[in-house]
């Protein structure tokens, strides 16, 4: 039974990845002009013919996709085309992907570290002053876009107080503090909205869970509130929270473009933007595929985690 669950999930994952990447490759085929003309605007007809063959555009939609996929799975993500040469997309992604992944991981750690205690506390004190203060504050926070928070942080923390640099990215190898200094403001900008969203999700689930009979039973057995909250209520209430976090992880890889631009962090989001504005469709296709793979992998991971956190979920899915 469990084996068929995994087969089904993996099949779904592969179908999603194939669907997205094939859709992208069809878009390249459906362009009103030849991609070779776009990629080599000042090239000769011979150079364009050569490029058309090299990319596989002369093989029809299926042939083109098969060629692209064959190269993609071997780590050849295609090239970025200049008037005087090419650059490998994999080289660009090798720089951009770690930045985006770290930004996403730090953002999730910060957001969850704040949202979980707040959500639990808010549900425990539901209807009381603490709950109202937290709920209203979060409502306000969720309405502020992350770029606005970024600009305010830049103005206050960067320009006025001059505590942190406002631009650039430094890898961990440049020193932990140097790395952290450049990540704090981008991470905070992206975290604020997530804290609000996560806390509200957890609060709602916790309130429902705290009304369950087994919670009343646990409390009547004389267990401490803390133990009831964290051992008995939090675990089953956290499935929605972690599912939402997983979806956001996928989204943050390619979707933090505004914050990446403001702080000049330049991760995958910026590369996608650059590929779109430079009409580098082959590079774009590979980048979308990478984002898609991360997206479905995070979802699969959260499915597995959800099964362990709340066995009822796993059983429901297996039975389904």
């Amino acid at each position: 039974m469990r084996g068929s669950f995994w087969v089904k999930r993996l099949a779904q994952l592969l179908i999603t990845v194939f669907g997205v990447t094939f859709g992208c490759s069809l878009l390249v085929q459906l362009l009103p002009v030849s991609p070779a003309e776009i990629l080599l605007p000042v090239g000769s007809p011979e150079e364009r013919d050569l490029l058309t063959k090299e990319i596989g555009l002369d093989r029809g939609p299926i042939g083109y996709y098969a060629k692209w996929l064959g190269e993609f799975v071997t780590g050849d993500f295609g090239d970025i085309y200049y008037s005087g040469g090419t650059e490998e997309v994999s080289g660009r992604l090798a720089t951009a992907l770690p930045r985006s992944l770290l930004l996403m991981i730090y953002t999730q750690i910060v957001a969850l570290s704040i949202a979980i205690p707040l959500g639990v506390w808010s549900a425990y004190r539901v209807g009381r002053r603490a709950d109202k203060v937290i709920s209203n504050t979060l409502f306000t926070m969720s309405s502020i876009p992350n770029f606005a928070i970024a600009l305010v942080l830049v103005l206050i923390v960067g320009v006025r107080l001059q505590w942190l640099p406002t631009l650039d990215y430094q890898p961990f190898s440049a020193g932990p503090w140097e790395h952290a200094k450049h990540m704090i403001m981008p991470v905070l900008s992206l975290s604020v909205g997530l804290v609000a969203s996560y806390t509200r999700l957890l609060r709602a689930d916790m309130i429902a869970t705290l009304r369950e009979d087994y919670i009343t039973m646990a409390a009547s057995k004389g267990l401490s509130d803390r133990r009831v909250l964290w051992r008995h209520a939090f675990r089953p209430s956290s499935v929605t929270l972690f599912t939402s976090a997983a979806l956001n992880m996928g989204g943050l890889i390619g979707g933090a473009i505004v914050v990446e631009t403001i702080f000049a962090t330049y991760g995958v989001g910026f590369e996608v933007f650059a590929a779109i504005s430079g009409r580098q469709y082959i590079a774009l296709q590979s980048m979308v595929a990478i984002i898609c793979i991360f997206y479905v992998l995070f979802n699969l991971t959260i499915d597995v985690i959800a099964g362990y956190v709340d066995p009822r979920t796993r059983d429901r899915r297996i039975n389904a």
Binding site: L151, V154, L155, G158, V159, Q162, L164, P165, T166, L167, D168, T261, I262, F263, A264
Partner: peptide, 19 residues
């Protein structure tokens, strides 16, 4: 040399001494 498409990023970069 860093390409900073947002004018605000260049201005704040100068003022915060990042640039």
């Amino acid at each position: 040399f860093t390409f900073l498409v947002e004018t605000a990023s260049r201005v704040s970069g100068l003022k915060s001494k990042s640039l």
